[in-house]
Amino acid sequence: MATVVASEMTDPGGPGSSAAAARRTPRRARSMYPGWFYLPAAVIYAVLFLVPTVASFYYSLTRWTLFESEFIGLDNFVQFFSEPSLLTGLRNTVVYAVVTSGLKVVLGFALGLLLTSQIVARGYLRSVVFFPVLVSTIGVGLTFQALLDPTTGLVNTALGTVGVDGPGWLTDPRLALLSVALVDVWKGVGLATVIYIAGFVSIPAEFREAARVDGAGPLSMVRHIMLPLARPATVTVVLLSLIGGLRSFDLVWAMTRGGPGFTSDVIASVIYKQYQAGFYGLSTAGNVVLFLLVTVIVLPLSVALNRKEVEL
């Protein structure tokens, strides 16, 4: 009997072997963690995201205060879209998101190439490029508000020393939104650069060596090797920058508060102004509009970008 048991335990295909046990064990039971391990994360996700989202959709259909609410259907949405500042805010939001995301992709790609090449003080320069990402957005906004002041700002003062009459960066309706967008790019390009650096470092050296053997120059190397193989990094930068641009508020509010007039208003600042005025249901409807806008733009774009394959 002992001999039989020992043979079963040592036999790779016997009933006592681990292979046999694995065949008898259902696939779901072999999961690394029990199902209830996921329960805390699910509860946190539901409390912090699902419940507020559902509540926002409900309260966007009501006229509410802290103590009571009245169901009014789609009246908030009708009123929100009849606001004269909404179309301006919607246009500015799209322009702001496209400009900031486009510049972050281009500059992040260029800086990523530079900071993965053999240059002096490469580590220090990487820290310098990434440092603005760590600075408070409100602090950056207030600092550049002072620097871009048309009369006392350092930028126009420096331009005046060389005989150039500096414009009203934040007071000219034609320049206010673009000025804020450029500050946003300055602050956020460091993150795009780090993502591109990670993408470039992950490219196998064999591809570049093969391209050099075939006589590829620097431009051909960038066009046919670095750019296609860094596609995942590009997709990440585009999506993150676009989402951030569509949801932008803090930098715009710190620098211009949507002015002059409504020329630099974005949807988030229009919503905030409705909150300030006490129209809570109306501003909640604006939040739902912003949520749907981000979803409608980013979700199909994400699917389209991730569907394409890299072609060398």
Rank of each mutant, 00 (worst) to 15 (best):
V51Y: 14
Y59P: 08
P132N: 11
V98L: 15
T116G: 01
L178S: 07
Y58H: 10
T93D: 13
P173E: 05
G141W: 06
R63W: 00
R63E: 10
P150Y: 09
A158C: 06
T161Y: 13
V78T: 14
V162W: 12
R122V: 02
A176H: 09
T171S: 07
S69M: 06
T65R: 15
P173H: 08
F130E: 01
P150W: 09
L177D: 11
V155P: 02
L154R: 06
V106T: 08
A158W: 09
E83N: 14
V78K: 15
E68T: 12
V155C: 03
E70R: 15
N156V: 12
L147A: 15
F109S: 14
G73V: 10
V106Q: 07
F130H: 03
G139N: 05
T151L: 13
S179M: 06
S69R: 14
L177I: 08
E70W: 10
F80K: 10
L178K: 03
T93P: 05
Y124W: 05
V133M: 07
Y58N: 09
V129N: 01
L154I: 13
Y59W: 12
A181D: 00
E70N: 14
T157L: 12
F71I: 03
V164P: 09
L87A: 15
V51E: 11
F131M: 12
E83C: 07
D75V: 05
L107K: 12
F80D: 06
L74P: 00
Y96R: 14
W169Y: 02
V155S: 06
Y96L: 15
D149M: 09
S101T: 14
S117N: 04
F131L: 11
P84D: 04
V43W: 02
